[in-house]
Write a protein that binds this DNA or RNA. Structure first.
Lengths: 206, 206
DNA sequence: ATGTCATTGACCGATTCGGTCAATGACATT
DNA sequence: AATGTCATTGACCGAATCGGTCAATGACAT
């Protein structure tokens, strides 16, 4: 990575990084062309190679950047004293939305990176993401209180349903939808509320 | 398409079709190589071109085959007299599982085909799938009875949650998991049952 | 011994790949 | 106006890969 990249205005940096994330999140490493990234970023391929030493360099830098950004943003507004199961979930989702507003393909890129098997770019770092994800989700949900749940509710399965639901909901939104963040959040909260009303004992549903 | 393809044993036909579906479901048309398909099918590229006139021919034949197979199998065991919301859903899911057992990438291939925008292979057929899907889902859910639902339950949102949940559940299974169909069905039913218990009035939960 | 036909490795020209470089142009300094 | 600096690019490189072809192989029936 060339230090000159940092001297670019933040907006241009993001344009380039987002273009790279977009392409790298679509296919495996080998099928991603630097030409496509450059075109998406609105610059020439030559300039892209001026900022980064090569395709591999860009790819690995991008991963480090994305992972750092993800961890930093997710921790930012997390309240470690909150114990309400659904409030924790909603807060986490809001953080995720904020991330996606800056880097729309960040999550998918991290997943693709995690699944990448090309030996050319494979090292032990590829599995970091899963570890961090499960560790932080454990840490986030650590204080989560399931005692408010009705009898016979399997909290683990409920968490799965909510995660799948959130994923499906986001996937069902088009690129244009995503611009209206408030509308998205509002609608998403309705879905979370459905699950909450089904899971909590009557006394906690005020 | 060469008629000799039909003279192959069914198993070999499926091997080739599945290999093609697998590759075509991964990336857009242009990025899919016939070499990769042939390798996955365990035959030479030359033989693949012996059975099909070209890449485009294979692609379009595959779509027609997949769509026909999907429609036929989904209708096969559907009971048009059933009115129970969740029984209809479970039955549809079972049909889907049966399809995936024969052609693991059929659904994803149909979706990718629907999203394909390459003018080289684009025609009005690309949008058939969405129409058929929404029409048949409407037809399937036509008799579905939501009167058993508790007060204040939004059936449409529930249906979304269940679809997203089913999608997320399938996605979370690895290729190896999918071999054990019974286990999958059993576990899936547990998730459906959770949603059913939350949605139905007490009197219908026996 | 001959004919049939599925199957393949080697090859084609065209395109695309990651990467390079000389040339351009905008702008600051003198 | 002349010079220097440096971001930016179009044109280009050899190598790899693309869709597709074909002569040769080999298994098997007659």
């Amino acid at each position: 990575m060339n230090d000159k990249f940092y001297t670019l205005p933040m907006e241009k940096q993001h344009t380039i990084l987002n273009a790279a994330m977009h392409v790298f999140s679509k296919y495996e490493y080998k099928k991603c062309s630097t030409e496509e990234i450059a075109k998406k970023a609105g610059i020439s391929k030559a300039l892209l190679f001026h900022y980064f030493e090569g395709k591999k360099d860009l790819y690995l830098y991008l991963y480090q950047y994305a992972l750092d950004f993800f961890v930093r943003e997710m921790s930012k507004t997390h309240d470690y004293n909150e114990t309400d199961y659904f409030k924790i979930l909603v807060n986490a989702q809001m953080n995720k939305m904020d991330i996606l507003r800056v880097h729309p393909d960040l999550m998918q890129f991290l997943v693709k990176f995690y699944l990448e098997e090309n030996p050319e770019v494979y090292d032990e770092k590829n599995k970091e993401f899963a570890a961090i994800l499960s560790e932080s989700s454990k840490r986030f949900m650590d204080r989560a209180d399931t005692s408010k749940f009705k009898e016979g509710i399997d909290a683990e399965k409920i968490l799965n349903i909510i995660v799948w639901m959130a994923d499906g909901y986001m996937r069902s939104r088009t690129e244009k939808d995503l611009e209206n963040t408030d509308r998205i959040n509002e609608e998403y909260l309705e879905y979370i509320e459905i699950m909450r009303r089904q899971c909590y004992k009557e006394e906690y549903l005020v």
